[in-house]
Design a protein around this nucleic acid. Sequence first.
DNA 1: TTTACATGCAACCATATGGTTGCCTATTTT
DNA 2: AAAATAGGCAACCATATGGTTGCATGTAAA
Lengths: 106, 106
Amino acid sequence: MDEVFKALADESRRMLLDRLHARNGQTLGELCDGLEMTRQAVTKHLGILEGANLIATVKRGREKLHYLNPVPIHEIGVRWIGKFEVQRLDVLAELKRNLEQKDQIP
Amino acid sequence: MDEVFKALADESRRMLLDRLHARNGQTLGELCDGLEMTRQAVTKHLGILEGANLIATVKRGREKLHYLNPVPIHEIGVRWIGKFEVQRLDVLAELKRNLEQKDQIP
DNA sequence: TTTACATGCAACCATATGGTTGCCTATTTT
DNA sequence: AAAATAGGCAACCATATGGTTGCATGTAAA
């Protein structure tokens, strides 16, 4: 889980996931197109994403195809965000209540 | 958005959010209890969480109370995870299809 | 079988990050 | 007022991170 959060912490990596989300199964070269980064930098990012199990790769001839794996992101949603969602409005109400209470203690 | 992801990337910070989730409105000292970290380290983490708008603070006398703000986490769920959720099963099916297709090209 | 193409590997570099220590300030409590 | 409590500030340190360059390797096309 920690690896997933760490992988998602970088804007370049989130952008790579967005690209794969737009079109799955792209090669390294395709994923590099139009980026202001060397191919090696992209390779490292993809390695980190793969290490976090956020993408899976398949070698086809001399190319390497990259596929998005949304499962870990789904798990973040279920196991982490869900937990904080439940009490969303409640907490905001409580926060407001406490902030107002503060003014009553000089 | 980037700050939120960065803030969530650290295990210690996620743990602090968990603690506030368990009991909201704790002081710095309370949040430090039982942690193998100096108070100053915790202060820094809380500063980053506050910078990402994940917590709000209120000074009460010589204490500082910390409140969880679940809104940014909610936004991650809506604007980012949702996007990858929709196609979850579709993508897994496609991935499997492509992996199998690979074997047909020696 | 050369030549071109797609990717891999490794060393290196600057900055970001998480943590520490030491000291200062502001409230309580005695 | 003095002592204790809660927190803030700043300098410093080691390691992690994101990036680069240079060269090596495997595969496809001429």
